[in-house]
Design a protein around this nucleic acid. Structure first.
Lengths: 158, 158
DNA sequence: ACTATTTCGTCAACCACGTTGACTATCCTA
DNA sequence: TAGGATAGTCAACGTGGTTGACGAAATAGT
């Protein structure tokens, strides 16, 4: 083992990672609300991104997010209710219900990406660009398996 | 702004932070389950830590965690049910119900700290100790306000 | 000492997000 | 054409949060 010295108690690495995530997510949604998307909840951005430009089905979405098809279906319901997703029938398969991002959803997604870029730039201003890049590289190294495992009910804030 | 170059799409900093957090939390609980604490859920460690060695009340716990006293009370209920917390009457104030960590809770807490230290050492082995320290320092800088804002219902996994 | 306010805990109803199991309708294949 | 796989939905439930209302106990003010 390289460093036998433990982290200072109360300042564990996982809590720091969570706090960093929260900071970005909170800032993002404060800004999103200002820009006309107050209904967009933290989970929604990830879901919209997982739906993608080509659309999907609830079952496939569930697989992408690592959750059950039922959970994915309910999430789609909520996003449809607030106008970010829409469902259409698949003419080639009457069982399937295609899920697509609406124009409003695409707007929210685009703004989210822009805001994240600005927040990242703020971090680079404070820490230095190379430190941010190093953090991203290191996290990519350590966390490669957990890209879209979002199966943490409710966690994005209430 | 220091770096106008955006992060690569799909690999946003927040997702990396979340994935890093998840990785640690998942590894922690896999190991905790092996060591005799399969009922300990991800949120519980933070709650036990917030209760502390001196004990608290549900209301005060809610303030520490940034959640309502009702939510704190329900969380205490669950931890009591699995034997990690206990309630006693406050002889000096009949309204208050003191919440304390049980011996089993203390054991889980101690093991969590040990496992986190080992996981941190693994990160240091892979990334180099100075990179881990740099990450912690940078996160402390950027996320100082979010230490115990755990108000993300369910988020620790299901 | 008596009233008024505050505080603590709890109950009830609700929401977001997840789970498993069961079921129908449709599609595909032997 | 019968049988199995797949898509979606419904129901019941669990966890973690919210607000509002309420009684009991402590405290402050007159």
């Amino acid at each position: 083992m390289a460093t036998p010295e433990p982290a200072r108690p109360g300042f564990h690495l996982p809590l720091l990672l969570l706090a960093g995530f929260r900071t970005l997510i909170d800032d993002l949604h404060a800004e999103l609300a200002r820009e006309g998307h107050p209904e967009l909840r933290p989970l929604h951005g990830f879901v919209l991104q997982a739906v993608g430009a080509d659309g999907t089905t609830a079952t496939e979405l569930g697989q992408r997010l690592g959750i059950s098809k039922q959970a994915a279906g309910k999430t789609v319901d909520r996003l449809v209710a607030v106008g970010y997703l829409e469902r259409t029938d698949d003419p080639s398969d009457a069982r399937r219900r295609l899920v697509r991002v609406t124009a409003r959803g695409a707007d929210g997604l685009r703004r989210s990406a822009e805001i994240f870029d600005r927040l990242r730039a703020q971090w680079a201003d404070t820490l230095g660009p190379e430190r941010v890049t190093a953090m991203e590289d290191d996290l990519r190294t350590m966390a490669s398996a957990n890209w879209f495992r979002l199966d943490m009910p409710g966690w994005f804030g209430g």
